[in-house]
Computed example of a mutant assay.
Amino acid sequence: MTEYVLIPGADGRAWYWHRVVPELRARGHEAIAVDLPEDPSAGLADYTEAVIDQLDSAPGRLVVVAQSLAGFIAPLVCARIPVERMILVNAMVPAAGETAEQWWANTGHPEARRAAALRDGRDPEAPFDPLVDFFHDVPPEITDEALSIGPPGGPSTSFFADPWPLDGWPDVPTRFLQGRDDRFFPLEFQRKVVADRLGVPVEPLPGGHLVALARPEQLTDWICG
């Protein structure tokens, strides 16, 4: 049996994975979706500790799965505890000493997002809209449920200001899954970032940025593959 640790992105709530958890359990695995701190003073070390604190005391074959912003957290977890592998989903890939605030400009994300919008016939100057950029392929009833929960607290200022502390990527087998229709982190942008920073292939899969909400069965197939 494999135990999957599912870390959400900027939303910070375990709820993000609520459609994937039963899919993993139906395949005979264990799944732990974690909540991230809501403390406005919490930094990267606090986020890492919060994930580890929510794990079973004696995990078996542990696989860490990280969504979006959790790309800054998952490697820190993997550097602390024994894991079998790490799976990044539509994730940010940090460089040594880089803050999450610096990542956007360092990777050329604003330009890549505008270019993708132009290519797709959307307004490249439109401000971020979660319904357009995140929920465009999520079923309406799931979108309604997400919005009814209320806005997340989001990452703390300290999180964005903390330099990523590792000198390099932990020595853990790593896969990178990327939604072909992700409007926030376009596929070609991610291919370049991942090639430059990780040197592993990007595995394109159907869906946008919130693929765990939009296509839980297909994402689970990829995670278990």
Rank of each mutant, 00 (worst) to 15 (best):
T2E: 11
Y4K: 01
Y4C: 08
I7F: 01
R13T: 14
A14S: 11
A14Q: 02
A14N: 02
A14K: 02
W17V: 07
R19G: 14
V20G: 06
V21F: 04
V21L: 06
P22S: 12
E23W: 03
E23M: 13
L24P: 03
L24R: 03
A26T: 14
G28D: 11
H29T: 13
A33C: 08
D35C: 06
D35G: 08
L36A: 03
P37W: 02
P37C: 12
E38A: 15
D39Y: 00
P40V: 07
P40M: 05
G43F: 02
A45E: 15
A45S: 15
Y47L: 06
T48C: 15
E49K: 15
V51K: 01
I52M: 05
L55W: 00
A58L: 13
P59Q: 05
R61M: 08
L62Q: 01
A66I: 01
A66W: 01
Q67E: 12
F72S: 08
A74Y: 00
P75W: 00
L76Y: 01
P82K: 03
V83Y: 02
E84F: 07
E84R: 08
M86E: 04
M86V: 06
I87Q: 04
V89C: 10
V89S: 07
A91I: 05
A91W: 00
M92R: 05
V93F: 01
A95D: 10
G97Y: 01
G97W: 01
E98I: 03
A100F: 06
E101I: 11
W104F: 14
P110A: 06
E111G: 14
A112Y: 05
R114D: 11
A115F: 02
A115N: 04
A115W: 00
A117D: 10
R119W: 11
R119T: 14
G121N: 03
G121W: 01
D123E: 08
E125Y: 04
E125L: 13
A126N: 07
D129E: 09
D129T: 12
D129Q: 08
L131T: 14
V132F: 10
V132K: 08
F134P: 07
H136L: 08
H136P: 12
D137S: 11
V138E: 04
V138P: 07
P139G: 10
I142D: 06
D144F: 04
E145G: 09
E145P: 07
P152F: 00
P155K: 00
S156N: 05
S156V: 07
T157V: 15
T157G: 15
F160W: 11
F160T: 12
A161I: 10
A161C: 09
A161K: 09
D162H: 03
P163I: 12
P163E: 02
W164F: 08
P165R: 02
P170F: 06
T174F: 04
T174D: 08
L177W: 02
Q178G: 11
Q178S: 12
R180V: 15
D181T: 14
F184Y: 13
E188T: 15
E188H: 12
E188I: 09
R191W: 03
L198Y: 00
V202C: 10
V202Q: 09
V202G: 13
P204G: 10
G207T: 01
H209N: 08
H209D: 09
A212Q: 10
L213S: 06
L213W: 01
R215L: 15
P216R: 00
L219V: 05
L219N: 04
L219C: 09
D221N: 14
W222V: 12
